[in-house]
Structures are given as C-alpha cells and as structure tokens.
Design a protein around this nucleic acid. Sequence first.
DNA 1: GCCAACAATCTCCTACGCGG
DNA 2: CCGCGTAGGAGATTGTTGGC
Length: 324
Amino acid sequence: MAIEKIKLPAIKKHNSLTDGYIPKSSKQVLPDKLLNALYYKYEREGNKFVMSLSELKQLLGLRSDGNVERIYEAIGILRHPVAVKDFTYKGKKAKWASVSFLKEAVRWVEKENFIEFEISDMMIEVLKQKVGYTELDLDICSKFKTKYGLKIYEMYKRYHRIKNDDKNLAIIKKDLDELNKKFGSEYKTPSGLLRGIRRGLKEIKKITGEDISCFYDKKKKFFVFFWKIPTRYPKLRIPYKRIDELIEWYLEHQKEAIDIKNIQKYRESLKKSILEDEFDGLDILYRGMMMYKYNILNIEKYYDEITGKYKDFNNYQPKTSLFD
DNA sequence: GCCAACAATCTCCTACGCGG
DNA sequence: CCGCGTAGGAGATTGTTGGC
C-alpha cells in the first residue's frame, strides 16, 4: 500500500532536565535517557504511572533482551537525593531542599511485566524553574551511546536559535567546572574534557547530521561551542486553510496519537507548532498529503524553494484507487 | 602546561538457550 | 509469546606516559 511510504515525524517531548540537576551519572548514558523517558510519561500521565518493561526498553532505545539489571541500576541513580536551593513550590518559597527525581519504583509480582513509578512533583517544579523547557525528540535521544553526545545535543536543542552578535552563528560558552558538572566528570585540564567532547560531537553528527564545533579559549578559559543557525523560513509555510486538514491527516496516520488523553488539546498544540514553523517534518507530511490524498505529482510547482512556502492547490482530484 | 598514543576497564548491544 | 542470564565483541571512557 502506497500510504505506508509516508514517514511521520515523532511527537516532540519536553525536557527540562538538561543541566546536571541529577545525581552524577558516572559513566553511563542510561540514567539520562531514563530521565527523558520518565519525563515524557510524566507529561502525559502525571506523577504516578505504570510502564511495561517493553515500553521502557523502547523508550530507552534498548533493543536486546536481558537489560533488566542495567535498568534497575539506572532507576537507582534517579533515586539519589540532590540538594536544591531557592525555588517556589505551590506558592511557597523554599531556601533549601533535598529532593530526588524518583520517589519510588516498584515491580509487583502480580504485575510482573510492569514497573510502577512515582515521580516527585517538587523536583519537576525545581527543574522547570531552574532550567526551563527544552524540546527534545525521544526517538533521537534514545540513539545516543555516549553521555557526551546526549548532553551536548540537549544543550544544542536548548540554545538552538540563541541570539548573538553574529546573526548566523549560535555561540555557547562554558567553563571547565560547568562542563564537569554537566557530564559528571572530574577533569582537571581542558584537554582531557575535549576528548570526550570531540567524541560527542562526532556522535551527534552521525545521529542527527547537525554540525557543532567546539574549541577551548585559553586566554579567557572557557570552552566555546558554536553552530550555524539554520535560515529562518517565513513562519507559516503552508496555506492557512490547509492547517486543520493537515492535522487530521497527521492524526489519521499517527499511531501514537491513540494514547493521547486530551486529543483536542493535542490538536491545538500541533496547530501552534505548524503556525510557528516548529513542526518537525512539515514538508514530508504536507507533501505526503498532497501526493496521497490529492494525487498531486508535480509538487514542486506549488513549492517556492527560496522562501520554503507552498502555494495552495485548487484542483481537487481525490484518488479513489488508493486502497485497491 | 598540552597533546597523542597506548592500555586497562567499562558500557552497550546482540545472539543464544532456558523457563514460564 | 515474554523475560532472564550469560558470553563475547565493538567501541567508549579514562588514566598514564613520553614528547613538545
């Protein structure tokens, strides 16, 4: 069936946990990936939820069997307490607190293939206040094998379009202490840390294709990360009257959408991201709709390469033979 | 000091067989 | 079907050493 050729973009997930506000994850990426996966569930289902082992493995990007011990270990790390200062919780101001991200995780005998999680609301609040939101794509995050790659990628997503003097270049500066904290390392010299950074940048390039560079400024004593800011397209690139139709088309072909509890709210968030041109894979989706719903083959006729905008099409010719 | 090369250890992933 | 344990390999991580 032709329709299977359309590759739909993954739903975006928020992640506010990118700045090392978790216990030192030593040499592993897994606790970081687990954090992303749990936050993803938290956003959808609140602070208590059950998750099957297979779903968890999928979210962590583990394809093989027999990783249970490693998962237990990662869960253990997220239960370590962290000291946090100066935040507001439920209208009250706190000076200091000792909090752990995960309150408890249980695997009951009677429900063997599931793990029951309870996440700390307070910790989520702290993280939101301290570091804000970063949109991450779990499908991409789960592919990382090195903590350097994942951490730098999270930073990259967070400061993706950061403003600088040079409008075409995003620049982030961090000193040795900040990065040691971020990576959970204890390097005493910049050169040691640079090795890991280079490996991470190489991995990011391999996984996402994004080109990020980094060097150490010896005089000012900080690391400089920089990348080209992609050219901005006009905000709305498809005809306005096609937006709702495109969302319906997306939902029809999006298996994950079945799990969404508040479908109307989800529709609104999709619309907003299309209006702001923040919807990953808009082109593929829109072209897919033109091609498979309307049987339009000369798509380029409606697309302006320079502005990235699509002209509307009027020739309504529904394809009737699609499912024959 | 920094860096490259070497080396020891660790992590991640897969394949396979076993048992429910 | 699912999960568990194990073995083994690729590659990641980190410490060390010698040269500049």
